[in-house]
Simulated scan of single mutants.
Amino acid sequence: MKRILVPTDFSEHAEYALKVAAQIARKTDAEIYLLHMLELPNQTVDAVAPGSEVPEVMFYMKKAHERFEELKQQDYLSGIPVTEAVQFDRAFEGILKISKKHEIDIIIMGSHGASGFEEIFIGSNTEKVVRTSDIPVLVIKKGDENFNIKNIVFASDFTDEIKKPFEKAVEFAALFGAHIHLLMVNTPNDFKSTSAAEKIMTDFVRNYPIGTYSTHVYNETNVEKGILKFSKSINADLIGVSTHGRKGLNHFFNGSISEDIVNHASRNVITFKI
């Protein structure tokens, strides 16, 4: 983990993410890429060219760089290489383009979640990044001066397609020497006996260089509720889930547990692309 991307709108939640990124960067000798997206009207964007002096564009760019300079003076970033960028694009699309261009290893974003009509019709940039990113996305929900992960819940059905995301989860847990709680949620429509579920999980992790872990079976009416309630019951520091990256009508009809968790969890969440 050598390159960390932190998108920022200079809000309080974005700074929560930056503070966590700084702590991880110190652990891994990583550099931080700070990105601010300017979503301007199409006609304004079309007018932007090298050397352009469109007043509105110049004003917002100047303000963004002033805010960057303020952030870079913060003590928690002292000694960490920080690269700043202002991009003209829709936020989540720009984030994905920059992550590929600079071969980013992880995206760390702040989020306060979304619900009701906002969730259905608008959604959040964080949710869209979670859905479409090929690299892990760490979603920070609250300020934490000491981001020290001890207990990670990794929720899954533990099928073969989860192997690659799980490898990433194990690598992340190893950074903190964290205990991984393997969780399988039993629902009425997909029920397994405790012994069968535990065997699936034990067989799944057998060939991984995993540190300390435990297996858990939790019964609930749906998977999202099971993950959230179990995580609360053990006071988990982080929830880990995998995402299929569904788009279009497929996403609309099938939904995504990972996006629901990102929106509704009060705890930090990390997602891994299948």
Results as ranks from 00 to 15, higher is better:
residue 269 V to Y: 01
residue 100 K to R: 14
residue 244 H to W: 06
residue 79 G to W: 01
residue 232 K to E: 02
residue 75 D to N: 13
residue 86 V to R: 11
residue 189 N to A: 12
residue 110 G to F: 01
residue 95 I to Y: 04
residue 210 I to D: 04
residue 249 L to W: 11
residue 238 L to T: 00
residue 21 A to V: 09
residue 139 V to Q: 00
residue 32 I to Q: 07
residue 208 Y to S: 02
residue 105 D to V: 11
residue 1 M to I: 12
residue 45 V to Q: 05
residue 226 G to R: 02
residue 124 S to P: 10
residue 244 H to L: 07
residue 190 D to I: 06
residue 234 I to D: 01
residue 230 F to C: 01
residue 203 D to Q: 15
residue 246 R to H: 13
residue 17 A to F: 04
residue 228 L to A: 04
residue 31 E to L: 10
residue 85 A to W: 11
residue 191 F to G: 07
residue 166 F to M: 03
residue 74 Q to D: 13
residue 20 V to Y: 00
residue 121 F to T: 10
residue 213 Y to P: 06
residue 227 I to M: 02
residue 226 G to Q: 03
residue 149 I to G: 00
residue 104 I to R: 03
residue 67 R to W: 08
residue 99 S to L: 07
residue 63 K to M: 12
residue 245 G to F: 02
residue 246 R to Y: 14
residue 91 A to D: 03
residue 160 D to W: 07
residue 248 G to A: 08
residue 31 E to G: 11
residue 228 L to K: 08
residue 88 F to L: 08
residue 119 E to T: 04
residue 36 H to T: 04
residue 22 A to M: 05
residue 95 I to L: 06
residue 189 N to W: 13
residue 97 K to G: 05
residue 133 S to L: 08
residue 26 R to T: 11
residue 178 A to F: 02
residue 249 L to M: 13
residue 70 E to P: 10
residue 180 I to L: 10
residue 141 K to Q: 01
residue 252 F to V: 12
residue 223 V to Q: 02
residue 219 N to F: 13
residue 196 A to T: 12
residue 137 V to H: 01
residue 80 I to R: 06
residue 115 S to W: 10
residue 214 S to M: 08
residue 235 N to K: 15
residue 173 A to H: 03
residue 144 D to P: 09
residue 149 I to C: 02
residue 111 S to P: 05
residue 128 K to Q: 15
residue 233 S to Q: 07
residue 165 P to C: 05
residue 61 M to S: 12
residue 268 N to K: 07
residue 103 E to M: 10
residue 260 D to Q: 13
residue 111 S to G: 08
residue 45 V to Y: 04
residue 59 F to C: 05
residue 72 K to E: 02
residue 252 F to D: 09
residue 235 N to Y: 11
residue 204 F to H: 00
residue 195 S to Q: 12
residue 110 G to E: 00
residue 13 H to D: 09
residue 32 I to S: 06
residue 146 N to M: 09
residue 274 I to Y: 14
residue 39 E to T: 10
residue 186 N to V: 14
residue 68 F to P: 02
residue 255 G to T: 04
residue 268 N to G: 02
residue 169 A to P: 05
residue 204 F to G: 00
residue 160 D to A: 15
residue 123 G to R: 03
residue 60 Y to F: 06
residue 108 I to C: 07
residue 158 F to S: 01
residue 18 L to G: 03
